[in-house]
Amino acid sequence: MTVSPLQGITHACFGLSYLLAFALELARLFWPRTGWRVAALGLGLAGVFAHTLYIYFHHPSPATPYGSLLLLAWVLALFYLYGTTVRYARQAWAVFVLPVVIGLVGLSLAFAATADAPPLDVPAWLTGEHFWGTVHGALILLASVGVSVGFLASVMYLVQARRVRNKVNPARVVPLLSLERLETMNRRAVNVAFPLLTAGLLVGSLLLKTEHGAPETWLSVKVLSTAGLWVVFLVLLYLRYATNVPGRRLAVLSIVAFGLLLVALAAAHPFVVGEAR
């Protein structure tokens, strides 16, 4: 059996590509050069390509912190490419999205097991061999994308709102999306993520009850932080549609939701035994 050289791709390949792309995008803001945008895009594209191949060859399990963070980083990297090339080419999109991608890749690396780690004992339904397990994983992953997009929109919103509040000359600062656009992006992300998260949690709860009913699993960090995330989302929706709370506060709550998501993803899954790989 032959081994493709592409199987030798490591975290460093795409992590460094993203890092260099970010450095170039950052430099471009202060010293605008067309070539730097092209180089940054090339590096970003190479990073996404390497990232995709890595996932294809290594099949990281979404049930593990390592796998879920890596998969989320991959989806956000696609989001970065789409935004930079199609929708928000004139705005400082990459400067906000790439740090999150790099952070998630770095965090997943921190969870990567050593080479001699014992094999994992992951339940079949969680790794995707079981239909409902796959559904649960897919729903949570998609909701995570929504939470991340909401987080990105919120960070940009807070920066933009601060600028408008201080009446900063728009021509002298990094171009950002309008407050209206960012608010819409955040609202849509939350509106999409909440039902997905709810459905994912319901499926997960049923599975937990029927196939892994140990009472202590309900009190695991993962389950509690995910439940907390769901509650924050509920509060977000209430504040958005039933009150006149300013957009800034909603943005702060969306950032809190992302923090809880990171805790949930980083926490060991109650069903997985062994190294978190």
Binding site: V164, R165, N166, K167, N169, P170, A171, P246, G247
Partner: peptide
């Protein structure tokens, strides 16, 4: 009444300052 979100209030001085900054730039 200016707080940047949801109400932004700009007066002549604010706009003139932006114009002058641009000219200097």
């Amino acid at each position: 009444i200016h707080d940047g979100d949801p109400v932004s209030l700009f007066n002549v001085d604010d706009l003139t300052a932006v114009r002058d900054q641009q000219l200097a730039e």
